[in-house]
Design a protein around this nucleic acid. Structure first.
Lengths: 198, 198, 198, 198
DNA sequence: GATGAATGAGGTTTCATTCAT
DNA sequence: AATGAATGAAACCTCATTCAT
């Protein structure tokens, strides 16, 4: 029973891995089951349909997987510091570091999120994004409460920070030699000034 | 001759219009020629192939169209002021105003730009984005030269501003009641602080 | 009235000309009305539909045109000689000469005949071919009657001659430098021997 | 593995079979995937695309299949005799016998070969035809070397023989009652005279 | 669990033809 | 007579999914 579950999970993980790489390299549009199966060393696309409840399910797992990895990576670094300001810095730095270390995963993740939330009517796939903004907003509010931060709209600031972080991805595509650490340091400086008391 | 060109352009414009609306409502992925033709009141998808040299051509025209409209809108407001700081504010405000007034166009535009380049090897379709960042970077550098702005990395700041503007789009999807004017005012304030002398 | 008819015929001839060139260069399969119209300098494929009663009609005219030109060319040279043997030689030589002088027309003609008589059920387009074989057969029978030729099956001989002539076309495609005059001379020699008395 | 290959080949063979019959009956032009699928008892044209890498691939297999069958048939009969003259006779007789026994296959084959190369720039698809002519030419040269044959251009003679054989096909369409054995005997007689010493 | 053949819907595109101007 | 936009059918092909083995 456990063996079966284990095997099943191993297969799922293998497929998810292949899906991430396929989407990362070919893009969402060209990441058909056929391409993913080829990369996973599977002889049939039916295997994917067998393990996942449709393409949406696979994509959801891809998102979940990358997000979980990213969160674990960041959580460790954010929990190591204390106070809203320090946490904000750790958030920015750890997130950018993760992007730099996992470019393929990030490409896949963003591509998945984009396609999931294609139409204006779609909701649910943007959950993560808004969740992330919410977290940042809470952090910013807390900082204003403790007096570490000055006056500003925490929602707009949260969006600005979140988007500035995501901006590194496109930048890396066009300028692969971009120094992500320097980018992080500069962004932290910008946010420091923007959140400071007048 | 003129009549022909006019008629032809009128049809093309009509199709582009339908494409924008279709992409805006269904998302790029579901925006097939069939859907677009239906919305344009055409009896067959062959009509689109007749007027456009393939799907890429139609999408390119959609991008061109929205971008041109947007640029004209912004140009007018940016040219009305003088000096890097004022121009930066005008840029942010006019861009956000346009987004607020043309939500469907923006949804379509962003979706098109996203799907333009499949995988990580994107190039060419991000031209606009990086062009926009370049313009902002130049403005920021000029402000630093004239002494209006303080010290900061103009590239990172440009990306931050550009991304913060684009952030309104996702925000509007989740919170349609967001006050875009207030968002613009707050973003201007944030940028003012971030670009100020220490 | 006559002017109209003249103009109409001129247009028809122009279109037939363009069709021959298009089929000769691109092949029957790619010779769409669009391609033909382009070559004819017409702004609309509708022009072709206007002057011809469908594609079959145009193709029929192409066949008629090339055939008529070919027949006129050969007739002149065949009528210049007398007697079955001499006429047979003149037939072979003049036919091959025509092929050498009008390669594009021949390519178009053969391509048209092939497509017309695609399925085994089709008949009518092979009319010309069998007509030509019939003519040869009559000539051969006449020669046997006059005693110029020996004993052989005139039908099989007619087919052999007709096919040997057509064979130059494929040969010219692969070996464009083939000396058609020499080919004709050699074919005449072969037929001479084959039709001779034992 | 073997089972797979077998099954796969069986399906492929079934489709090739259906393609041959379809082309033979409707002609190349009307032999769409839809028609072929219908004849093969397939529910969709996708099945053909699944087994063959495009239409060109299927057609190539059709040609290969008929050619291989034909060659095997002829080879057996040609290898049973010795000497250029006997082999030439066996070639003519076995080839015509095969045509008489497999009219549909031959119709399909010729149609495929004709349509393979669009315009005058044909190359590659005529490989078989020229290969066959080359074989005949070699046989004729050998006969001249051994003294069995007289003086003539072996290339022109090869083309004549090859074309005379192919001529039976069109003849059978118009005159289905043609006695192919008699045709063969008469053609052999003609070639005997044409290749004889003066 | 795993395979791969089969399905059927959907996509874009090209074509001959028709029609209003 | 001529134009060129519009039509609708048909083409090939890809895809996610299902199913028997």
């Amino acid at each position: 029973m456990q063996a079966k579950t284990f095997t099943e999970n191993a297969r799922r993980a293998q497929i998810v891995r292949a899906a991430i790489e396929t989407i990362g390299e070919l893009g969402y549009a060209k990441a058909s089951f056929g391409q993913i199966a080829k990369r996973a060393g599977l002889s049939s696309t039916g295997m994917i349909s067998y393990h996942f409840d449709g393409k949406a399910d696979l994509i959801a797992e891809v998102v979940r997987d990358v997000l979980a990895t990213s969160l674990a990576y960041m959580r460790e670094r954010i929990d190591a510091v204390h106070g809203p300001a320090a946490e904000l810095r750790a958030y920015i730095e750890s997130n950018l570091a993760f992007v730099a270390e996992h470019p393929v995963e990030l490409t896949a993740l963003l591509d998945c999120l984009r396609h999931g939330g294609g139409g204006a009517t779609t909701a649910g796939n943007d959950d993560w994004y808004h969740g992330a903004v919410d977290v940042l907003e809470s952090c910013l509010r807390e900082g204003q409460r403790t007096g570490e931060f000055g006056r500003f709209d925490p929602r707009v600031m949260a969006i600005t920070v979140r988007q500035a972080i995501d901006g590194i991805h496109t930048e890396l595509i066009r300028r692969p030699d971009t120094d992500v650490d320097a980018y992080a340091a500069e962004l932290v400086a910008i946010v420091d000034r923007a959140t400071a008391h007048d």
